[in-house]
């Protein structure tokens, strides 16, 4: 039953994603594209967090996706929808390698290792200008860039697909494995799952999805440079969104993405007459958000509806 309802919602969302951009003001349509990229990285980050893997390297996946799409498009003129495929494969491969190499690392150590690899990727992008264009960046071949409406529909569909993936993941038998991974890997083995292989699988999936976000951005801005493609800000928003929305939930990253992007956009539009005020307000809201609602917007909503706090709202690692 639930699965059927899930399918209906997914199909409905896809239809909305395809139709709505035709009727929206262009700025809002652009905003939805940005939102989709944020949902992609946020959901992908949340997938890894679900398995107890804290990533500080999502800008690495993002940059990898953006660069592979842009360079392939320029070299072979492959259209934007096709460029997703190699980028995702590369992201998945990179994620798998990362998980394999860092096999013994946990928690914060894993996090720092991911941060280190993404910084190293940025340095490579800067230092191999013959391939990447170096610090001057690269333009995506302009003649084959999709128009705005296609762009928005396409990225919304990808966002829906991503949320659907995490939804089905949370309905599958893997959810127990995921939750168990957060606590102890030996418990996972009892569920008949090989933890090492599972780690690699989750990281690869997460990497593939995050590099999709990079691909969208490359086509959306039409220009990328190492500073923006491997910006640590990406990693940070990838974790702020699920945290703000609600960690370890399906809807958390979506709600969080909408909330923080809306916040940043509103502060940008209304406080843009003086440098720094927008980001300051954004920072303040973040601080108060964490202090006042530690389990995110979703947790806040659930607590309002049910007096008993559900499992999803209280992360297993809380001591």
């Amino acid at each position: 039953m639930i699965a059927v309802r899930g399918w209906i919602i997914i199909l409905g969302s896809l239809v909305v994603a395809l139709v709505a951009p035709h009727f929206l003001p262009p700025g809002f349509s652009d905003w939805l594209t940005r939102l989709s990229t944020l949902i992609l990285v946020a959901a992908s980050w949340n997938m890894m967090a679900n398995a107890g893997l804290i990533s500080l390297g999502h800008s690495g996946f993002w940059g990898l996706g953006a660069y592979s799409a842009a360079l392939l498009a320029n070299a072979f003129h492959i259209p934007f929808w096709l460029s997703i495929v190699p980028a995702m494969l590369l992201g998945a491969f990179f994620g798998a390698c990362l998980a394999y190499i860092t096999g013994r690392l946990r928690g914060l150590f894993f996090a720092i290792a991911t941060l280190a690899t993404s910084e190293a990727l940025r340095v490579v992008a800067l230092m191999v200008p013959k391939l990447t264009g170096g610090a001057e960046g690269v333009f995506v071949f302009d003649q084959i860039r999709p128009d705005r409406i296609t762009m928005t529909s396409f990225s919304l569909c990808l966002a829906v697909a991503t949320v659907a993936t995490s939804y089905f993941l949370s309905r599958s038998r893997y959810q127990y494995a995921l939750r168990a991974m957060r606590d102890s890997e030996s418990a996972v083995q009892m569920l008949g799952v090989n933890p090492a292989r599972f780690r690699i699988g989750v990281t690869a999936l997460s990497g593939a999805i995050a590099s999709c976000a990079g691909v969208i951005t490359a086509w959306f801005t039409g220009y990328i440079d190492p500073g923006s493609a491997f910006d640590l800000k990406i990693t940070i928003s990838a974790q702020i969104a699920p945290l703000f929305g609600g960690l370890y939930t399906v809807t958390g990253p979506v709600v969080g993405s909408i909330a923080i992007l809306a916040l940043s956009e509103l502060t940008r539009l209304y406080f843009n007459y003086s440098g720094g005020v927008g980001l300051l307000v954004y920072g303040c809201i973040l601080v108060f958000g964490v202090l006042m609602m530690p389990s995110g917007l979703v947790g806040l909503w659930k607590r309002r509806r049910k007096p008993v706090v559900t499992d999803a709202a209280v992360p297993a690692r809380a001591k």
């Binding site: 967090a49 804290i54 940070i236 974790q239 702020i240 945290l243 703000f244 960690l247 980001l279 300051l280 954004y282 920072g283 303040c284 973040l286 601080v287 958000g289 964490v290 202090l291 530690p294 992360p315 690692r317 809380a318 001591k319």
Partner: peptide, 17 residues
């Protein structure tokens, strides 16, 4: 007592401020 990641978020927000 919140999960460690909330503290990351908080100190990051403080840094932004």
């Amino acid at each position: 007592d919140a999960p460690g990641i909330n503290q990351v978020l908080l100190t990051f927000g403080l840094g932004l401020v």
